[in-house]
């Protein structure tokens, strides 16, 4: 799922400075799971903002709402009444949710409350790590289910590089070398021969972003 973390507090305070009544909108999906923008974290941020503003003598009224998923139009619509009563919205959902609200409420300022970081997995409770960069051209079948794009510092398609030492990355010594992991897992699966195959350079053009956002269209699903 998408992983995010809260933006620096001062940054949020700064762009909320002109307002005295806002909506803090959380999201019940990914950001709840990674403890960045669910109902609990949203309420904490709201409480902190209220107190910080109170201290400066310019109180801020905050309404709170946490739709199940901000990235769906119907959920965004649910907020319309509330949004009508505030001057701006602080969205602690991922960047997608922020934009969904922006699209549906053209007249309202929508501010992001979190930095959306990556798509990742829970390594242990409270620790999340990036696993996919959405390159749009998956090669995990060749790399024993470990993605070098997301996990190798150099995004090497044919690794490891010369800097890999004792299974660790040369850029950051505590990080596992992705290609060491790929090698070890291939070996235990009896698939080492796959690594003799050179993975050709990626066709980045296929899923290029130079013509705007990538897009999936399922004609059969359209209504």
């Amino acid at each position: 799922m998408i992983k995010a973390e809260q933006k620096p507090f001062e940054e949020i305070l700064e762009y909320l400075a002109p307002y005295n009544k806002i909506l803090l909108s959380g999201c019940g999906a990914c950001v709840t799971v990674c403890h960045a923008g669910g109902e609990k974290e949203g309420a904490l941020l709201a409480s902190a903002l209220r107190m910080a503003r109170q201290k400066t003598g310019k109180p801020l009224e905050i309404l709170e709402s946490t739709p199940a998923r901000q990235c769906e139009p119907e959920f965004a619509q649910e907020l319309s009444d509330t949004i009508g009563r505030v001057q701006a919205v602080l969205s602690v959902s991922c960047g997608v949710g922020v934009q969904t609200l922006a699209r549906h409420f053209p007249a309202t300022q929508i501010f992001p409350g979190v930095n959306t970081l990556f798509m990742g997995e829970t390594v242990e409770h409270g620790v999340w790590e990036e696993r996919c960069q959405a390159c749009g051209d998956c090669i995990l079948e060749k790399t024993a289910g470990i993605c070098p794009i997301a996990r190798c510092a150099k995004q090497l398609l044919n690794g490891p590089c010369g800097g890999s030492a004792n299974g660790k990355c040369e850029i950051k010594r505590e990080t596992d070398c992705a290609w060491q992991l790929i090698y070890d897992r291939s070996k235990s699966l009896g698939q080492l021969h796959r690594l003799t195959e050179i993975i050709p350079a990626k066709q980045w053009g296929v899923q290029s972003r130079d013509s705007g956002p990538r897009r999936i269209v399922r004609e059969d699903l359209k209504v």
Binding site: K40, S47, R50, M51
Partner: peptide, 11 residues
């Protein structure tokens, strides 16, 4: 005790 309770008490 939720973290929020600690802040809410102060608030």
């Amino acid at each position: 005790i939720e973290t929020l309770y600690l802040l809410k008490a102060l608030e």
